[in-house]
Design a binder for these strands. Structure first.
Length: 526
RNA sequence: GCGCCCGUAGCUCAGCGGAUAGAGCAUUGGUCUUCGGAACCAAGGGCCGUGGGUUCGAAUCCCUCCGGGCGCGCCA
């Protein structure tokens, strides 16, 4: 065979079990360069392969695949490996302890959060779980936009509602928040502080009332997210960027790099110099920095002050246009833009309309969680790739409780717990069980599913695609239920009972791990 | 007009360079009901939006067009 550069050697899982547990299409890939028939290469490579541990046989299949079949011994040995790894099963060292920050949700604190925000929340929290388990040092952060135009509008709107609630005349600002939320918030403030702010000068009152409202709103958002089991390590204040000179330093860096030009009284980031379509305003002609300027300072802070190795932001589809200029800004700060990952989560629509923050009827996240529960909520919001728009049919989700895939998966875990209870009652100890006694297709198929967990974790961590997790869990549950139907665990055959109990214990570890990574409960009873 | 995302089974979506395109729900028919039936088994159902191209091989990569969503502000 002529010497040729070797293509990347990849293995895949054939979808047809007859093609083995692993397969390689290497011969097909190198057929042309080697000027040989792929089948001949496959034959040759196969003959050269020495005994591989755990591989029962290697076969060649047209038009040039090499198929690998695992031995039952190797598979059953994994049961013991999983048991000894315990909760740590599937953990990886991909990250090697490097510091990665996930910033997600970060909704403006001007009202309750909605279903669409819930998607980013679940995506972020699951990604954080997976990355931690994959060897990264993970930090979850919520960026609080507590300054700027929208905050100003929020303050004025709230103050206005406050006055109205106390019977005073006040016209809502044109860019104000019209929703009923602020009416209720004003009412709450009155019940706690009375009309105390009527006595202070209006501009001062706006600030006082606004600050109270802001704190309450942030707390409410935090509580809503907690109900979905989403939490953060850091709530980072945008305002602090200005108070701690982060903004000044970031702008100085850009200026030194020649990335800031003054034009029409405003200061522009010349992103066109970095291949962008247009420049972007950093400081308006009225001297007030834009949100973009804050964000530049924020990323300056993340990378240069806090020394994060990697930053992942999860944004809604409406922020798509912001992606490339943010990357440009990061590289202008002298940071490799590869270190910044941005996940755009496409919109979530509801059966009765699209989510919108300021217009009329909208389903809050809290309402959704109350209706369908955190587990189902998380599973559903997770089950679609972030790139795809998602249709969340509230009615269906409510009715679906019995046929819901989430229960299907959790039921498998509960069934295992039930088997274990029975084994406990009968004082069966499987510690010295021999997993090698597991030989049926149902048993081995279950093991084949179980051992995929590390691969799934790696896939999710590498591609930042948590949606693979629910699919894995479902497939695992299918394999388990099928096993359960075919194989009686606690039986008269003591040796087999102990072997199957081991399998069941190991399966429980895998279920618990998968459910845990998804932030779902792993119930013992249902 | 420009940018990004999506168009795969009746519905909601996986698969994103490999061997007969998958799952859930829905439909139809079976199992059985001694460890929890919230279960299992099986069937039907698809020119993978269109037309080209690259490749030994394309749902997957490139281009055209069509359809849908989101952006394109000295808003965030």
């Amino acid at each position: 065979m002529p010497a040729t550069p070797l293509p990347e050697i990849t293995l895949e899982h054939p979808q047809n079990p007859e093609h083995g547990d692993y397969a390689s299409s290497l011969p097909l890939k190198m057929g042309r360069a080697a000027r040989m028939a792929p089948m001949a290469i496959a034959e040759m490579v196969t003959e050269l392969l020495t005994q591989i541990e755990g591989v029962e046989r290697v076969s060649v299949a047209a038009p040039g695949f090499i198929n690998f079949f695992l031995t039952a011994e190797w598979l059953t040995r994994q049961v013991d490996d999983i048991l000894s790894a315990g909760e740590a099963y599937g953990n990886l060292d991909l990250g090697q302890g490097s510091k990665v920050q996930l910033e997600f949700v970060s909704v403006n604190p001007t009202g309750p959060i909605h279903v669409g925000h819930g998607r980013g929340a679940v995506l972020g929290s699951v990604l954080a779980n997976v990355l931690s388990v994959a060897g990264y040092s993970v930090e979850r952060e919520y960026y609080v936009n507590d300054t700027g135009n929208q905050m100003d509008a929020f303050y004025r709107s709230l103050h206005c509602r406050y006055l109205q609630a106390l019977g005073r005349e006040c016209e809502m600002p044109p860019d104000g928040y019209q929703g009923s939320y602020l009416v209720e918030l004003a009412q709450e403030i009155i019940s706690e502080n009375g009309d105390a702010f009527l006595a202070v000068p209006p501009e001062e009152a706006i600030q006082e009332v606004g600050k109270i409202g802001l704190q309450k709103t942030i707390a409410a958002i935090g509580a809503d997210l907690e109900s979905l089991r989403v939490s953060f390590d850091v709530w980072f204040s945008e305002r602090s960027l200005f108070e701690n000179n982060q903004y000044e330093r970031a702008m100085a860096l850009l200026r030194d790099g020649g990335y800031i030009k003054e034009r029409e009284g405003a200061q522009w980031f010349v992103s066109t110099a970095l291949g962008e379509d247009k420049d972007n305003v950093l400081v308006r002609s009225n001297g007030i920095p834009t949100y973009f300027a804050s964000d530049v300072a924020y990323h300056y802070n993340k990378f240069l002050e806090r020394g994060l190795d990697r930053v992942i932001n999860i944004w809604g589809a409406d922020h798509q246009g912001h992606v490339s200029r943010m990357k440009a800004a990061v590289s202008a700060l002298g940071i490799d833009p590869e270190r910044l990952g941005i996940i755009i989560a496409q919109m979530v629509t509801l059966s009765d309309g699209k989510l919108s923050k300021r217009s009329g009827q909208v389903i809050t996240l809290r309402h959704l969680v109350e209706e369908v529960g955190a587990d189902a909520c998380r599973f559903f919001l997770l089950s679609r790739s972030a790139d795809s728009q998602m249709d969340f049919d509230l009615e269906l989700a409510k009715q679906q409780s019995a046929d819901n895939p989430v229960y299907y998966v959790q039921y498998a875990h509960a069934r295992i717990a039930s088997i274990q209870r029975l084994a406990n009652e009968r004082n069966i100890d499987c510690a010295n069980g021999d997993a090698g006694l597991l030989t049926t297709d149902a048993e081995l198929s279950l093991i084949r599913r179980m051992v995929l967990l590390p691969e799934v974790i790696e896939l999710v961590a590498r591609n930042l695609e948590p949606h693979h997790l629910p699919y894995f869990a479902q497939d695992l549950a299918t394999a388990f239920h099928s096993f359960y139907k075919q194989c009686r665990v606690v039986s008269d055959d003591e040796a087999l009972t102990r072997a199957r109990l081991k399998l069941v214990d190991a399966a429980q570890i895998v279920f618990a791990k998968a459910l845990g990574l998804m932030g779902m409960t792993a119930p013992e009873h249902m």
